[in-house]
Each structure stands twice: as structure tokens, then as C-alpha cells.
């Protein structure tokens, strides 16, 4: 059984004069221990999707208007607050882009670490403190025992991110959702933090949903990839197969627009135009206005995510034709 099974998730925001749908019918499965990526550009709905799963969006303006989020077989969307709190933090944790939004500035790092473990794992204060010191050591913070008494602002950006990772993993969750965990960090720090998270997740068999805009990061850390565009998944598949032979024109466009550090590139082929305004989505495929393969049908009818190859899905009316042309 999948660890997490999201079915038809739909999240809407009520704005002053209209309603938008940042997440519009997303299906996603995460197996125990695997790292799956959600890749998309700003406004694609990838962060709203993560916060919807965690039920961390404020209502109003947000309402989850449809779907199920089955975690270990139980629907998080219908769970009462008390049960939900027990799941969050203990079995399901989140790592955010900006650690200061998740850390309490007036509590020491030690207190923030021990609080969750005392609540969720029933440790005594003494046990929790010992474990907190171990956790800081585990995320490679120098002088860990002394640093328990420090406040978040006394750490550098990279170290703060490590503290948040220690917090997220303190109760050995089954699933971690990491939302652009290293976007604000330097290249070498980013690599260190992500290597660390990968190692820790492997050690404990923790599964991860990695949310990012960076196709290089996805290639390095994820085994499965979900490409999101305008609130929907447009392509889904194992990383190697998807990069080797992208099925959706948007995925192909993304891969053709990233410069690469490992080889010279004569010319980039940017995708034309800009992502659509979530309040003014076109009636058919949301990518059609930017798509070179778009035909009449794409502008009128919205394609669903269809199984096209072994383990590969894409939401595109032209995908089967493209596949037929590509294979001899």
C-alpha cells in the first residue's frame, strides 16, 4: 500500500471578487522510503499542494473543495484537529524554504526540539534534551550540546536550515515534505543540506516529497518526478525515463530552457510567453497558448493525466502522436 495517496485534490482561494483554483484535481502516490519530486514554476500550485496535504492553509481564504489525502490509509482531510496534530510532527513533517518562518524566535533551539519529542514520543525532559543534542550532531552542527541553548537568530542561514531539518526529523516521520528547502542558500550549502537530508531519510526509511523549481536538484535527489503547471500535474514518471524522453511539451520545453554546467550549449530554446494568470485560465489545456504543438482540441478541451507508457503519465492530447513519431 502506498504511504500517501492523494486523489483528486482540489484547493480553492476565495479572493475579493473571484475564486481561483491553485490546485485542481491532483493525484499523487508516494511509496514508503521513496523521494518523489514536484517540479513547477512560481504560480504552478506546488506549494499550495504541499500546504493542503498538511492542512496548514488558513480558511478563509483557502478551502479544500475536493479529493482525499490518504496517509497510511486514513484521510487527513476528514480527520479531527487532535488526531491531525498527532500525525503532523510525529509521522508527517515539513521543511520550509525559510527556516525563520518555522522556528520560534524567542525559544532556544533546544526547547523547540524537545517540545515536539516530549509531546509526540512521550520522552522525559532529560531524555528529550539528550536526544536533541544527538539530533544537532546528526545534522552536523558543530559544538551541538552548547548550541542547544542558542536562539535561531544566532545561526547562519545554512545552520538554521539544519536546525529545522533536525526538528522535522526528530520524531522519525514516515514522510517529509520539503518545500524549496534550499532555494535561499548558496550552491555549496544547498548541496550539503540536500545530501544530508537524503542520507538521513535513507537511514530511517523516511519518504520525501521534494518541491522545487530546479531540474538539476530533481535529477540529483528524486527517483520519481511530477511536473506541475497551472494547478495540475501534466506529467508523471520515474526520473530517468522522464528526463530521457519527456512526453509533455511543457516538460520538454523546461528541459530545453535550462543551461547546463556539464556541457556547452549553443542555444537555449526558451518556452514562449508566460504562465497563465490563475484567475484567467484558458478553457482547454492551460499550456496550449505557449505550446508549439497545440491544435484546436487543446484550446477547447482539457486533457486528463493518462497512462501512456509503463509507469508514465502525461496530460496532453498530442502525446500519443508524438510518441508514435518518436519510436520507429
Amino acid at each position: 500500500m502506498a504511504l500517501l495517496s492523494v486523489r483528486g485534490l482540489k484547493t480553492q482561494f476565495a479572493l475579493r471578487d473571484r475564486t481561483i483554483t491553485p490546485v485542481d484535481g491532483v493525484d499523487l502516490e508516494v511509496e514508503p522510503g521513496e523521494t518523489t519530486a514536484i517540479v513547477g514554476e512560481s504560480g504552478s500550485g506546488k506549494s499550495v499542494f504541499a500546504l493542503s496535504i498538511m492542512r496548514l492553509l488558513p480558511t478563509p481564504p483557502a478551502t479544500i473543495t475536493g479529493g482525499q489525502v490518504l496517509f497510511e490509509g486514513r484521510d487527513l482531510l476528514t480527520m479531527d484537529e487532535r488526531d491531525l496534530r498527532a500525525v503532523r510532527g510525529a509521522k508527517l513533517a515539513m521543511i520550509f524554504q525559510e527556516p525563520m518562518t518555522a522556528l520560534n524566535p524567542v525559544l532556544t533551539v533546544g526547547r523547540q526540539l524537545t517540545e515536539a519529542m516530549e509531546r509526540h514520543r512521550g520522552l522525559t525532559p532529560r531524555q528529550a534534551t539528550a536526544r536533541a543534542g544527538d539530533l544537532l550532531k546528526m545534522v552536523e552542527i558543530p559544538d551541538a550540546a552548547a548550541r542547544l541553548r542558542a536562539f535561531p537568530h544566532q545561526f547562519s542561514g545554512g545552520m538554521r536550515q539544519r536546525v529545522m531539518i533536525a526538528m522535522a526529523l526528530s520524531c522519525e516521520p514516515r514522510l517529509v515534505i520539503a518545500d524549496e528547502p534550499t532555494t535561499a542558500l548558496d550552491v555549496t550549502t544547498q548541496a550539503e543540506i540536500l545530501d544530508l537530508v537524503r542520507r538521513l531519510c535513507r537511514d530511517t526509511g523516511t519518504a520525501m516529497i521534494l518541491i522545487t523549481h530546479d531540474l538539476g536538484v530533481v535529477a540529483r535527489y528524486a527517483s520519481r518526478v511530477n511536473v506541475m503547471y497551472a494547478g495540475r500535474l501534466v506529467e508523471q514518471g520515474p526520473a530517468e525515463a522522464l528526463y530521457g524522453r519527456p512526453l509533455h511539451p511543457y516538460t520538454r520545453g523546461l528541459l530545453a530552457s535550462v543551461p547546463r554546467v556539464d556541457r556547452p550549449l549553443a542555444k537555449l530554446q526558451p518556452i514562449k510567453g508566460t504562465p497563465p494568470d490563475p484567475a484567467k485560465l484558458p478553457p482547454g489545456c492551460a499550456f496550449a497558448p505557449r505550446c508549439e504543438l497545440a491544435i484546436e482540441r487543446c484550446r477547447g478541451e482539457r486533457p486528463g493525466l493518462e497512462l501512456l507508457l509503463d509507469n508514465r503519465r502525461a496530460a496532453c492530447w498530442r502525446a500519443t502522436e508524438v510518441l508514435a513519431e518518436a519510436s520507429p
Partner: peptide, 13 residues
């Protein structure tokens, strides 16, 4: 720096 920069290709990574 070069080795820290990820490459958008899972086979190479």
C-alpha cells in the same frame, strides 16, 4: 562549486 552544481540529468547525477 562545479561539483556542487546539479546537472538536469538523473543518469549523470
Amino acid at each position: 562549486l562545479l561539483s556542487a552544481a546539479p546537472v538536469p540529468d538523473p543518469r549523470i547525477e
